[in-house]
Amino acid sequence: MASDVQLKTKRKISKDQWTAIAFLIPSIILIIVFVYGFIGWTGYVSLSNYNSLIPDFSFAGLKNYLYLFQDFRFQADLRNTLFFTILFIGAVIVIGMGLAILIDQKLKGESIFRNIFLFPMALSFVVTGVVWQWLLNPSTGFNQFLSVFGIQPKWYTDTNILAGFEWGSIEFGLPVAIISVVIAAVWQMTGFSLAMYLAGLRGIPDELREAARMDGATEFQVYWKVVLPMLAPITISVIIIMAHISLKIFDLIYAMTGSGANFVTDVPGVYMFETTFRGNYYANGAAIAIIMLLLVAVFIVPYLWSSRKGDQ
């Protein structure tokens, strides 16, 4: 009797297991086609001569890629992306962590501060772009304010490259104009790292800090030697998530500045959009997209892979 029940349960589970897999199949098919299939197709286009309105899938080898790496605009894009990513991630981490530590001090009004800092997260990059385009316009916005002090930065219209030197066809260095875009992006995304760090800080048991104090650690040492190391996994998550946002950024820059004079605020996302959908250079656009995907994958694949190991 008992074994009969057991047998019955066993058979039933396996039938349910099949139902479970059947439940997943539509999504898996969609992902295979729309993510992996389409990436493959984009890769195929990037190796073709399809650079006009008329589809031409004849094999071009790496021609489009070689063209891009010699292209002034694409070289500028890579430079801009590099500086944008470094400044953006650095600021988001420092400001986000700093504000999270301050909000975690059990001061009065902490929820008001938290809500203010998180608020821009709910906005669109397009809204942010439209607003900051105005705020950082050299003849309006903050410069009205700063004229009191006699400083008038040119913000995103500045074409200077700081510490520049000739490299390929471009001047390599920090494009001053990119700082304006970084400010807008930091305004929007700091809330994200703030929320992550706040959750992390709340997860550190008070006993740990107490123990460190008992051992004679000063308050600074408690933060430096206990709290900060415990926030390291969060910092890694923040870096990876911000890096992938930064590498594929498009809407903020498109809405705020566009490519800029001499492409000082151009990024691959904007170049891809314009060359593909305004210029009909499909193969070149596809090649840019594949390079963007590879850059993102460098960050994301190891991150995902390590989380799989953590799962098992």
Partner: peptide, 10 residues
């Protein structure tokens, strides 16, 4: 995580 540019043309 993919940049959607990489699937946009197809």
């Amino acid at each position: 995580f993919i940049p959607y540019q990489s699937i946009l043309i197809p």
